[in-house]
Design a protein around this nucleic acid. Structure first.
Lengths: 201, 201
DNA sequence: TTCTTATGTTAACTGAGTTAACATTATCGC
DNA sequence: GCGATAATGTTAACTCAGTTAACATAAGAA
């Protein structure tokens, strides 16, 4: 005789969903299990979310928001352009390492289709905007020629790719920092590796 | 009254598994469906594979092999070290773009655990060896100091990360070549972006 | 108060993974 | 050739997931 309308089911579901996602990833997240954990009937979640994708979308949205916030903070607090790119990359990888499941959720194939969740699309766009602005904005406010702009854009993409690749390989356990090195230093080292001119033959 | 022992079930299953994986990814691949497509009972696949992970492992192994082959071919046919890294990166991304589902399978979280499939581990290790050898081997066979070796290793990781990041972002639809550019040129451009010394302030 | 909406319930359907129990065919030692 | 054994196939069942329909009750507006 579960009491009807305890009024907070949606939030509780979201909360538990966060927990499960963090611990086991989207595959382990099942609506039935969620319902059981919440002490509510197995169909109840459907009153609050548009099926499994719906709940994943909700979680993904908040993940995108945290992600964007963290990047924004870093970007806002570093003056030099190069340093900003580096720190941003480190923050990018840092988020991935601290929240691997969320990172996978927002980038991977399990992410609900953006077309079907406008708020999700918005959250995603916003996060990428933060990234892009932070990377492309240069210190001096000189006007750029078209080709300079193109170069800046490509450099942004290249930087993003670099961070993304490191993040992915690290959370998938393909590469790891050597025993005597902190993760942060390791990442910064890798990011720097490409910035240093390899002007050998 | 399906005839017993038509003798090729395993291969047919693998074949169909390839097809489904290519078209829909690992989620769409179901043993029951596979069995139905093959015209065999729904439990039959379990005689040939160790459950779903087993069949995924088999597919992943062959994917790793193709991947390694393609990288090897590229690495073997380019003399200059820098050019080899570039071409290798392009091939890496090329494989991902041409076989996105396979690429995801061998790198992603759906990949069966390496611990449980020794042949899979072997295939994986082999592919990464190819990569690493190709990237770290330098033209001149000078002996390296320890710190030089460490640098070379880090540079290899950086190059790998770069290619991996581009591959991921492209197959996940996060970045795309501009309309007037071929994918290959686009990728080479991004790869080069980091190799060119950005020696501005 | 009564009508409507939101939110909860139970029960059912579908489809997946997996296993057990059983049946048939190959194959190998004799 | 023949019989034991392994390999390979079958059916039937179990569990769990997602999802929906039909129904019940609580809250709030008219």
């Amino acid at each position: 005789m579960g009491k009807y309308h305890h009024g907070d089911v949606r939030n509780v579901l979201l909360q538990k969903a966060e927990t499960i996602l963090t611990e086991e990833g989207p595959t382990g997240l099942s609506l039935r299990r969620l319902a059981r954990m919440t002490g509510v009937s197995e169909a109840a979640p459907y009153r609050h979310f548009d099926g499994k994708d719906g709940i994943l979308a909700a979680v993904a949205i908040s993940a995108f928001e945290r992600f964007a916030e963290q990047l924004e903070t870093v970007a806002a607090n570093v003056e030099r352009h190069e340093e900003r790119i580096m720190k941003l990359g480190a923050a990018y990888v840092g988020f991935a390492v601290e929240n691997p499941q969320h990172f996978r959720l927002i980038f991977g194939r399990e992410r609900p289709p953006l077309d079907q969740y406008p708020e999700l699309r918005e959250a995603a766009d916003n996060a990428f905007d933060v990234l892009q602005r932070a990377v492309t904005s240069v210190d001096r406010k000189a006007e750029m020629t078209l080709s300079e702009a193109a170069t800046a854009y490509n450099r942004a993409l290249a930087a993003w790719s670099r961070a993304h690749g490191i993040a992915m390989l690290v959370i998938d356990g393909m590469i790891a920092p050597p025993a005597d090195q902190e993760l942060g230093d390791f990442v910064l080292g890798l990011l720097a590796e490409d910035l240093i001119a390899p002007n050998d033959a």
